[in-house]
Design a protein around this nucleic acid. Structure first.
Lengths: 192, 192
DNA sequence: GTCTATAAGAAGATAGAC
DNA sequence: GTCTATCTTCTTATAGAC
């Protein structure tokens, strides 16, 4: 439950939301500052009033992602107490977002992949999004009786499988491939 | 066995090799034309004598990749007639290249991932690199008695697993994670 | 908090001399 | 085939009026 936003806070949130969508659809480097200007309906100077640089906007976008995914993970924990069901909720997210995944790839994976090559400073922040899922998934495997090291390995395994599926589906722009592979991943979870 | 190259052909090949390395290490968009100029030791105008645009250089880089990977696949076919051993050769490539994979990601995966967002024209050419492996891997599953549709699905599954491993290892810059996950993938192949 | 104007540099690409 | 010089456009960022 968040408090009502002041005008300034609303403007700031609007900028972050526009940037989040543009960064996802076109990549960080592929999104010019002017594109954010146009999408937000504001003017250049105004945006610089809220953020001192484009890098700064990305940091806010990553923070927003962290908030939203944290809320999602909390919801999955509320919706079921069975660790397997919780893991399946993770896979359901992948199938549920298949249209965007096919068009733009995984928002976390493509962002980290882009930043990892030449913007390691920014990637370090974006990697927190991986850590969020990695930790949460590992906790589910711990619930299933796995010791810590094995739980972390299984979490990374699942995360990697999901990333591979998203990448292949993105490269081939094919939702059927995504469905086909998530089914295999579901079977893997069920037989654990 | 290739014929000796003329001076012009050598210069052209040098440009492609410099660009290939830069595109891999810094991404396509992250590599400026000036960077290719400096790395090749030539001057701007000279490079434009061989390629009419930066996009054109990328197409030549993709073509070179296709040549090299085709040669690699042919070698794996010579080195063993057992389909499982051939699949394991594919995984051995991943572990063998772990240092570069950790630092720069998969040359095929990161290139396609970058281009798929906003340069679909170029990505279409780069996707041929995925098709090369997809077709070759599917042929191995066919050798193992799988019908065509299943062989293709298994090929994409293996390709996706390898991509996921490369991405995770790249994001965390961790060769141990790569080793850990390739071991799991080897086990999967062996139990087929 | 909003806006205009502009700085300062880097990008890809071209023309034309040698 | 090699080179210098330049064009145009786009980039992020800033200064300062209102």
């Amino acid at each position: 439950m968040s408090a009502a936003l002041s005008k300034g806070e609303r403007t700031r949130a609007d900028i972050v939301e526009c940037a989040r969508r543009l960064f996802y659809e076109h990549g960080y480097d592929g999104t010019s500052f002017s594109a954010i200007v146009e999408a937000s309906g504001l003017v250049r100077g105004n945006i610089y009033h809220y953020f001192k640089s484009k890098d700064d906007i990305l940091k806010a976008v990553v923070a927003q992602h962290l908030d939203e995914f944290s809320a999602l993970l909390a919801r999955w924990e509320r919706e079921s107490t069975d660790p397997k069901q919780r893991l399946l909720a993770f896979i359901d997210m992948v199938t549920g977002r298949r249209n965007d995944l096919v068009k733009y790839g995984c928002p976390i994976g493509t962002l980290n992949s882009e930043l990892a090559k030449d913007r390691r400073d920014l990637q370090q922040g974006a990697r927190a999004l991986f850590d969020l899922f990695r930790t949460w998934l590992a906790a589910r495997f711990t619930e299933m009786g796995q010791p810590p090291a094995a739980a972390d390995a299984l979490a990374l395994h699942l995360l990697g499988r999901a990333q591979g599926i998203a990448l292949i589906a993105h490269v081939y722009r094919d939702a059927k491939l995504l469905q086909q592979e998530t089914a295999v991943l579901q079977d893997w979870v069920k037989q654990l």
